[in-house]
Design a protein around this nucleic acid. Structure first.
Lengths: 260, 260
DNA sequence: GTGTAAATTTCGATA
DNA sequence: TATCGAAGTTTACAC
């Protein structure tokens, strides 16, 4: 990792370091007293105070106060960063084209500034999401119930997409709504709308259901369910099936790169 | 701003500095090669690579790669941070009680580490949001139309909350759905559901509408509207009113504190 | 603490 | 480029 640090630099030294870092596509960290204004999708002002400024080589620009996970102000990747000196003060600007957004930082006092080119070829491997649940159910449909046969994923209806559509052993139509976390009333209402959509819209499934005088079953599939959602489910004649999202990291571990 | 920097520290020096910083409730920044694992609401692994680690005094813990606005891994405020040495390697752990979540960072090579106590007494002033629009309409209802009288905000119905409920000059019931950004079909559907909710649920407003043989008018209030949403509005007999979210920062600027 | 809705949501996939 | 939906969403606010 190539890096550089400057402690309590003057305005021009800080400016030079930033220009250097931007050219080298390095990640920049600045501890400084600054004032921030933003105009774009919304509008904001942040008066003088000490913060951490982070500028990434992909154009992302973040200003962090000493609280919260979220930055107090930011600009997304692909934004254009510019530094300049005006009235002996250092300014940083981050500009986005579409939608038009401008972030302006006036820097009063830099405590220290640093940049580094970071070598990182790894991506996050993760599991435990709705998609993982869906994959798992498509592979092992019997975990929903014996005889369940999934037919379609992401089936488009008026109010959205049905996660999994399928049939039970009696050829009844099954509509599955998956949630990777505890399901609330929102999930039940969503499923209810999908069932209505299937009932109200002309489609092959509905025709088959009507021809064979079969039922449409709605199933909410989640690790657990909130009390009020459970009540609603019983009123609506919807079923709840408890399924934990899979907790296995699927991608093979890549060979660890040894950078040193 | 009190701060400290250590370049290429050994494992124990880095450990000592972190302990020092945690005691002093300082914000910590580390440029290092690390490996991350997370287990909690989901599950993830991130193999060896160079990243920036940020630990805030409120317990927030962030790991940033050189891309994206969002951290690759994180822990929310109030998490408990712990540092320890095992097999001559530095480990950082961030633990959250409820929901139970654990983030573990194995640090191989610290390029530099720093901490600072930041003085920042300012909060972000902002404008241009749905709430600002709502405030403005309550203050100047004539901007919706001449004779409009708002009665209730955040009126609870089956499928959510009606932003503003009111009456026009003919005593017809008006249901306003506000959007601070360009309104899409989702907003129209939302409003349509609220109108249905008002029509189907017994309430004082409905009784009055029925008694006086008045109408229920649905209004979508937003700066602009997407084409497909406009079509849907016309089909549904809903009205669209163009209102820009206010772009004035309301709070008086505080006196600038001079820290130095 | 729980639940609900907004957010400069971000981010990825897709048409 | 715009839209759509998930997210370890986060955050604020009401209950």
């Amino acid at each position: 990792m190539k890096y550089k640090i400057l402690e309590k630099p003057g305005c021009e030294d800080a400016y030079d370091l930033i220009q250097d870092a931007l050219r080298k596509k390095a990640t920049i960290i600045i501890f400084a007293c600054c004032k921030v204004s933003y105009e774009g999708r919304a509008l904001s002002e942040l008066n003088w105070g000490e913060r951490i400024i982070m500028i990434k080589p992909d154009g992302a620009f973040l200003i962090h106060q000493e609280k919260k996970v979220e930055p107090v102000n930011w600009q997304p990747p692909k934004s254009r960063t510019r530094a300049y000196i005006k009235n002996d003060n250092l300014f940083l600007e981050s500009h986005r084209r579409s939608p038009k957004e401008l972030l302006t930082v006036e820097v009063k006092k830099v405590q220290f500034i640093s940049y580094a080119n970071m070598e990182d070829y790894e991506e996050l491997e993760q599991a435990g999401y709705e998609k993982d649940m869906s994959d798992m159910i498509m592979e092992k449909p019997h975990m929903i119930e014996e005889g369940f046969t999934p037919t379609t994923r992401e089936y488009s209806v008026e109010h959205g997409f049905i996660d999994i559509l399928g049939k039970d052993s009696d050829n009844n139509l099954m509509i599955l709504e998956l949630k990777a976390r505890k399901a609330g009333v929102t999930a039940v209402k969503q499923l209810r709308r999908y069932i209505q959509d299937m009932e109200n819209t002309d489609n092959d499934y509905l025709r088959e259901v009507n021809a064979e005088k079969k039922k449409i079953r709605g199933l909410l599939v989640a690790p657990s369910i909130m009390d009020d959602a459970l009540e609603l489910i019983e009123e609506e004649g919807i079923e709840f099936v408890s399924v934990e999202p899979p907790r296995e990291l699927k991608r093979d571990k890549k060979v660890t790169l040894d950078f040193f």
